[in-house]
Nucleic acid binder design. Structure first.
Lengths: 207, 207
DNA sequence: AATATAAATGAATGTTCATTCATTTAAAAA
DNA sequence: TTTTTAAATGAATGAACATTCATTTATATT
């Protein structure tokens, strides 16, 4: 052992099992969606993921850290999917529709992730989370909106009004369908034509 | 004691203290808004309301029963306020605006009630609640929408699309302002003129 | 004032909770 | 194969949980 031993120390280590962490994360989201934050206990989660309770603490500092990591992950996944194929140079109508489609695809594909996300955002946990929207997303949207205004496709308005007009109806429709789903036990996907119909009406309110 | 003694039994009873129940209900909603469903324990609630834990069980069967009663109460209050001054014979624009104003008034006046309501609706607890919208509300809205369609002020569309277009932006704007509030610690009320501006844009999407 | 009743209580109960810890296991490097 | 390391564990810990119960308290009626 010399003074540099901590740098050149050989690394005889066992790797973390990523499949195991994935399982813990997925089961946690599923439990929260089905039983609420109340319903998530570390012991029940351990049992559901087939690991020891202590194992969870190898991957996460504590319960709160686990929840924050889950939220962080979904936030990143969601905004990444929302921007798939997007460019700030698209016409306003094309760009907004693309994001509606992308968001709906994510929600249909990962309903547990999305419902966990909504539950987290509507709870006080959100106040203790320091997760920020990824910068890429912010910058893209800012340029997109500036271009649309420059081209006269969109009139200037306060940002919160824009977001409320452009996405309020979308998320409301999604909520209707997710409620239906949990009530009927079956998943009725939002039909693309219904979505497009509503989109065209929303456009009228923004232009 | 005769066979009718249970009917004519004298009633030497001490009355429930309504002020006490009110306090329990209010503190419960406040705790849930501030700390989530996780943060509501019967012992902490008892302490906050200055009663014994056992007292809560005089008014509510158990924790779940308490939460359901709270939700039920807010649902009723909210839909009652929403209909204040409403008539199905109002013009579509007048009737919808009246409801926006009424709803915003309720949210501004009872933010804890509203935020509890939102948190409950976005949690799985909603699946175990058998609370229904009051019939009066349903009937009124149905006639209102039928009249508006008859007069040509509103085109026929699927109910969930109507609700999403007519209220999605409203609730989205409310959410923006409530988030701001909890982040800044101060309450910035939505200005009526901002609300009216957005309302006029929303109307364009529905007609 | 006396009485009967349910409201109200504080302490207690058994359970479940998040988290820790001494130990074992597996795997990467030598 | 041996060595070293961190992953993984099951059992344990003390705190907090929902709920109950034997008493006491307040009050509407007599």
């Amino acid at each position: 052992m010399n003074e540099h031993s901590f740098i050149f120390a050989p690394c005889f280590m066992r790797n973390k099992d990523e499949h195991k962490e994935r399982l813990i994360r997925d089961k946690a989201m599923e439990m929260i969606v089905k039983e609420g934050f109340d319903g998530l206990s570390m012991q029940k989660l351990a049992k559901a993921a087939n690991v020891s309770p202590a194992t969870i603490y190898i991957y996460f500092i504590n319960r709160e850290d686990l929840l924050n990591h889950l939220y962080n992950e979904v936030q990143n996944n969601f905004s990444e999917v929302a921007l798939k194929g997007f460019s700030p140079n698209l016409s306003f109508k094309e760009g907004l529709w693309l994001q509606w489609e992308n968001r709906l695809r994510f929600i249909n594909e990962f309903p547990y992730q999305y419902q966990f996300y909504e539950q987290f955002r509507n709870s006080p946990l959100i106040n203790h989370s320091d997760v920020q929207l990824i910068m890429d997303f912010k910058v893209n949207m800012k340029h997109f909106l500036m271009n649309a205004i420059k081209r006269g496709e969109l009139k200037k308005m306060e940002p919160e009004i824009f977001w409320s007009l452009a996405y309020g109806p979308f998320y409301s429709l999604v909520k209707f369908h997710l409620q239906e789903k949990t009530m009927m036990g079956r998943h009725f996907k939002i039909s693309p034509s219904k979505l497009k119909t509503m989109f065209n009406q929303v456009i009228k309110s923004i232009q």
